[in-house]
């Protein structure tokens, strides 16, 4: 069993708890045990919080990392926004003495110290890594294949970009999450401008909702053009933007969409036989029933 400290973030536990429940249950079947990271906070939000003062962003992300250092466990998480804060701050503090000294000065006030002793991974990247899990193991865990469904993958921004500060090699046309989707028996589909942002980040969703939704709407056009039955992503904030966003788009622009939006862990849960109730799919703004009917 590979053990990791599970950093929850905000939107998964507090808006889409099915993502949290699914991550724990599906990972266990794949030999990955997610341990609670007690007392963790918001990552904090790289755009909405970092825009105010990056010094506080570094220090608060470091506090979350130190909690895992104290457990002597690497961190894994299921949100791209959290990934940017936790992964990037961890790497930057390891590499830059000036930043680390500044952060440790503040952390000393609460008897903490950033040591740089652990690593941070997105759960999706662990799933893809053959040393930890790998596509074959995912395929072997499927008891209810998602056969007959077409799924569009939204990677989200902060998982892969800036690519210079990531382990990944391609942020223009990556295909590895498609492999993870295909392993569930579904058919992943390619669409125009796949790597475009969902529109939510940087505090724009809160600052100018119409602007933010206009970006989302463009993505929805591109995804439905290729006949996708659902969007999948690995970021609850992207999920919120696509899911609640479709309702807001209807209110603001009068355009009606009904495209189910599922976190990869929710898809994996369905494919491993979890019920929609076990995934709290009823909390989604957009009804997942058309998608569920296809896999019945």
């Amino acid at each position: 069993m590979h053990e990791y400290a599970f950093f929850l973030g905000c939107i998964a536990p507090n808006r889409y708890p099915g993502c949290e429940a699914a991550a724990i249950k599906t990972s266990r079947k794949l030999g990955i045990e997610l341990l609670p990271l007690k007392g963790a906070s918001c990552c904090p939000a790289p755009g909405a919080f970092g825009a105010v003062d990056l010094n506080v962003w570094y220090a608060m992300a470091a506090r979350n990392i130190v909690l895992a250092e104290q457990m002597n466990k690497d961190i894994t998480l299921i949100c791209n926004g959290c990934y940017k804060s936790i992964y990037e701050v961890n790497e930057r503090l390891k590499e830059n003495d000036d930043l680390r000294d500044g952060v440790n000065e503040v952390l000393a006030e609460i008897d903490m110290e950033f040591k740089g002793s652990i690593d941070v991974y997105h759960l999706a990247e662990l799933y893809y890594d053959p040393k930890i899990c790998g596509v074959d193991k995912i395929r072997d865990s499927v008891t209810r294949p998602l056969t007959g469904t077409k799924i569009a993958v939204h990677y989200g921004c902060h998982l892969l970009k800036p690519i210079k500060e990531r382990r990944f090699t391609d942020s223009e046309n990556p295909m590895w999450i498609e492999e993870l989707v295909d392993a569930l028996g579904a058919e992943s589909v390619q669409y125009r401008n796949k790597m475009q942002c969902c529109g939510a980040g940087g505090g724009v969703r809160g600052f100018d909702l119409a602007h933010s939704l206009d970006i989302t709407n463009e993505k929805l056009i591109n995804v439905t053009e290729v006949g996708a039955d659902a969007i999948t992503e690995v970021c609850p904030f992207c999920q919120l933007q696509y899911d609640r966003g479709q309702i807001e788009i209807k209110e603001k622009f009068g355009i009606e969409w009904a495209l189910p939006v599922l976190h990869y862990n929710e898809l994996l849960g369905l494919a491993q036989g979890m019920t929609p109730q076990e995934l709290a799919l009823d909390l989604h703004g957009i009804d997942c029933k058309p998608f569920l009917d296809k896999i019945r």
Partner: peptide, 8 residues
């Protein structure tokens, strides 16, 4: 304030 910080 219109940058979504997508890093493209």
């Amino acid at each position: 304030w219109l940058c979504t910080t997508c890093y493209s």
